Lab assay of single mutants.
Amino acid sequence: YHCKTPDCKGWCFFEDDVNEFTCPVCFHVNCLLCKAIHEQMNC
């Protein structure tokens, strides 16, 4: 999964039971359910 922050090169592999990941490059939290960044909110 590629981080949705513009111009960020961060990415990860994820498993089905994970709903979000913190990008190791820009540190934004990406929602894997809706494929967006909406920190401090539920999907």
Rank of each mutant, 00 (worst) to 15 (best):
V18H: 06
C43N: 04
C23R: 01
C3D: 00
H38C: 01
C3K: 01
C34E: 06
A36I: 06
C31K: 02
L32H: 02
T22N: 06
F13R: 15
Q40L: 04
H38T: 02
V29D: 05
E20F: 10
D17W: 10
M41L: 11
K35I: 01
D7V: 03
A36G: 14
E39A: 11
N42V: 10
N19V: 13
E15Q: 10
P24N: 07
D7S: 09
T22Q: 10
C23P: 00
V29M: 05
P24H: 02
H2G: 03
G10V: 01
N30Y: 03
L32E: 05
K9H: 07
I37E: 08
T22G: 02
P6W: 02
I37S: 08
C31W: 02
C43S: 06
Y1S: 05
C43Q: 05
F27V: 03
F27H: 15
F27R: 13
F13T: 11
K35E: 12
P6Q: 11
I37T: 14
V29P: 03
Q40C: 10
K35P: 05
G10Q: 04
T5E: 08
V18T: 12
H2D: 06
F21I: 12
C23W: 02
Y1G: 06
C26D: 03
D16S: 10
C26H: 03
F21V: 14
F21P: 02
C31M: 02
K9Y: 04
W11N: 14
L32D: 03
F27G: 15
N19Y: 09
N30D: 01
T5V: 11
Y1L: 04
A36M: 07
C26L: 01
H2K: 15
V29L: 08
D7Y: 11
C43G: 06
N19R: 13
P6N: 08
C34S: 04
C31G: 02
T5C: 11
D7Q: 08
N42A: 15
C34V: 00
A36Y: 01
G10W: 05
E15D: 08
P24M: 00
N19D: 12
L33S: 11
Q40K: 14
F27P: 03
H38N: 02
D17V: 13
K35M: 12
T5S: 12
Y1W: 04
Q40R: 12
E39R: 10
P6D: 05
Q40W: 03
N30Q: 01
K4M: 15
T22C: 09
P24S: 07
N19M: 11
H38E: 04
C43A: 05
C23H: 01
H2R: 13
K35T: 06
M41P: 14
E15R: 11
L32P: 04
I37C: 08
H2Y: 15
F21E: 04
T22V: 07
K9G: 12
F13V: 07
P6I: 05
V18G: 06
G10D: 01
A36K: 11
H2F: 13
C34F: 02
L33V: 11
F27I: 03
C3E: 00
E20Q: 08
I37G: 07
C3A: 00
L33C: 08
F27Q: 14
C26A: 02
E39T: 13
Q40I: 03
H28T: 12
H38M: 00
C43M: 04
L33Q: 12
V18L: 10
A36V: 06
E15L: 04
L32V: 09
N42E: 14
E15V: 07
E39G: 13
C8P: 02
C34K: 03
C8E: 01
C34T: 03
V29H: 04
M41T: 15
C34M: 00
H28N: 08
F21M: 08
Q40E: 15
I37W: 05
Y1N: 05
N30H: 04
C8M: 01
K35Y: 07
C12Q: 07
P6K: 13
N42F: 05
W11C: 11
H2N: 15
K9F: 05
C8S: 02
N30S: 01
A36Q: 13
W11P: 03
V18F: 07
C43T: 08
P6R: 09
N30A: 00
K4N: 10
L32R: 13
C8K: 00
D17M: 07
C43H: 07
C43D: 09
